[in-house]
Design a protein around this nucleic acid. Structure first.
Lengths: 201, 201
DNA sequence: AATAAAAAGTGATGTTTGTCACACTATGAA
DNA sequence: TTCATAGTGTGACAAACATCACTTTTTATT
């Protein structure tokens, strides 16, 4: 029990450090500043198949993924599921429209693996930006990168066929293919799993 | 000449007011603050068919569209043109990847109509954010909205067929159909102009 | 090791979309 | 008005992709 506690504390410090390094890739922080930042987050663990966000629910948090893997899913009117985004280590994820506007979720966020996250409530998100100007800058950078990534995906979707998009995905996120079933990659690429299955041949 | 000058001044004041109202939709500014903001911008006029950005060139500016209409174009390796975005009144546009990273443009930005813009250089963009914290917040909001719009388009692309996407586009930007040829709407939607032409029937 | 469940592959077939060719219409400049 | 050009429509055909049904393989669980 003593040992377990020590290990947990050690692990927790490691996770804290991950968040700090993630932020400091963009803006250096003093120890005091990071301590202040860190008070705005809470920690949570989820098991594979658990939902962080369910369609129709309020979206309390934006999530920073420490470890594990999430899928952000949009379900269309024929109940077919489409993957808007995968979120892996070091990614921020949420139903951002619902989060920013504080409305009900139109998408769901579900674990593909056991996942550890830091949670940032909307209130703490605002407080944090007010408390520390550096964090406003950090979130601006993050948002810019998010936009550029989305634009890149749009270009892929309008310029390339299924096979090309699959190859681009593998090039951009090679680790994904070992971590998620191909049916989910198909749902991300916007093709049927059968078509994706036939691409290799 | 006297009258012309008066009209010009009047028009210029109007454009200035447009920018101010655009910013104040997100964050209220004092007169002094807006005056400071405004010093960071320069004004430019372009004629239809002129390029604001050409592929391969350095991207000096981010543009705020006062009036007119632009297309942001990605040209693929078969020389086919794809429309990444239309930019109308009150929109910000640039090859943002090239702008933020100060690298060469991979896309071009061209006038579909005579267009008036305020130009913000990368240096002034940084200065402005440093000079006035409110503007950092403004750009964060803009970036967030940009991301949400892009995500919405991704969902449209992976969940809907050509006809549905066309209907969604018309619903979102009804004015576009009067202002741009259908071949360009096709290039935006990611379908051939022939397919788009056959959708109505 | 046995079994159930999930994931992946594949054939047959129909639908959607792209491509090429050509005709028609609208628009702007001389 | 005349002419050139840009935009649009449409037929014929080919390619890409979706869907349904079924089999095989892999993975997880007991």
């Amino acid at each position: 029990m003593g040992i377990t506690t020590t290990l947990d504390a050690c692990t927790f410090g490691f996770m804290q450090e991950k968040l700090r390094e993630h932020i400091e890739k963009i803006i250096p922080l003093t120890d005091d500043e990071f301590a202040l930042v860190f008070t705005h987050f809470t920690f949570k663990k989820f098991k594979k198949h658990q939902f962080l966000i369910q369609e129709g629910d309020a979206v309390k948090y934006s999530y920073f993924v420490i470890s594990g893997l999430l899928k952000l899913v949009y379900t269309d009117n024929t109940e077919k599921q489409h993957i808007v985004s995968f979120a892996m280590e070091d990614w921020w994820e949420s139903d951002f429209y619902a989060f920013y506007t504080q409305t009900k979720a139109t998408m769901s966020l579900e674990c593909l693996e056991d996942t550890e996250v830091f949670c940032l409530s909307f209130e703490d998100y605002q407080k944090l930006r007010n408390a520390l100007q550096k964090m406003e800058r950090f979130f601006l950078e993050k948002s810019n990168f998010g936009f550029l990534g989305a634009q890149r995906r749009i270009i892929s979707l309008i310029t390339s066929n299924a096979k090309e998009r699959y190859e681009q995905l593998l090039q951009q996120y090679p680790s994904l293919i070992q971590r998620v079933p191909k049916s989910l990659l198909a749902a991300y690429l916007g093709v049927s799993r059968e078509t994706l299955s036939r691409l290799s041949s």
